[in-house]
């Protein structure tokens, strides 16, 4: 408990709030710059924990592995830019951390169920009555709820199955 590192097999220990606060700092840093690359090494350094423990501790704290959390933030930002700007989709992909339009479009469709172009057309057709809510909360409320890995989601959709079994993910 003193080190804040989770134990492996024993009955689940309560996480140390001081560790959680430091993990929150890594999450905040991803939030502030989700377009940047966030390898585990960099995140672990922000939190002051070992790389070996970072990904698992983060997932225990926030319910998703760090790379998947980052993905939801990138998609959230891309969605906001599609809705609120007229930037070309390639530009949005590059601004939100993707290296290619193809990967962006495929991931976006696999997670949200529609293409960036479709989302833009739908969102821009409907005007919202949310001007009185601070913009970041509106945006966060629409963050994709990605509770399984993207690869698993793709597999389930191609199989037509709904297994919840989760494969181990690499951070």
């Amino acid at each position: 408990m003193a080190t804040g590192e989770p134990s492996k097999n024993s009955a689940k220990m309560s996480p140390d709030p001081k560790l959680l606060r430091r993990l929150l700092r890594a999450k905040d840093r991803m939030d502030a710059a989700s377009h940047e690359a966030w390898p585990v090494r960099r995140l672990a350094r922000v939190s002051g924990v070992s790389e070996a423990h970072f990904a698992r501790s983060f997932k225990e704290a926030f319910g998703a592995p760090p790379h998947r959390y980052l993905l939801t933030r990138r998609l959230e930002r891309a969605t906001a830019l599609l809705r609120d700007t007229d930037l070309p989709i390639l530009e949005i992909a590059l601004q939100t951390g993707w290296n290619s339009l193809g990967t962006f479009g495929r991931t976006f469709r696999d997670v949200t169920g529609e293409s960036p172009t479709e989302l833009r057309a739908r969102e821009q057709a409907a005007r919202h009555e949310l001007e009185r809510v601070p913009a970041c909360f509106v945006s966060a409320a629409r963050r994709p709820g990605l509770i399984i890995a993207v690869s698993e989601k793709r597999r389930q959709e191609s199989d037509g199955t709904k297994e919840t079994q989760e494969k181990p993910e690499l951070p």
Binding site: S14, P15, P17, K18, L20, R21, L23, L24, K27, D28, A61, F62, P134, F137
Partner: peptide, 17 residues
Amino acid sequence: VQILREVVAKGAMPPLV
């Protein structure tokens, strides 16, 4: 007490403006 300390440390309390 432990749960509340965890929730606060995770930044999960409601927004403040």
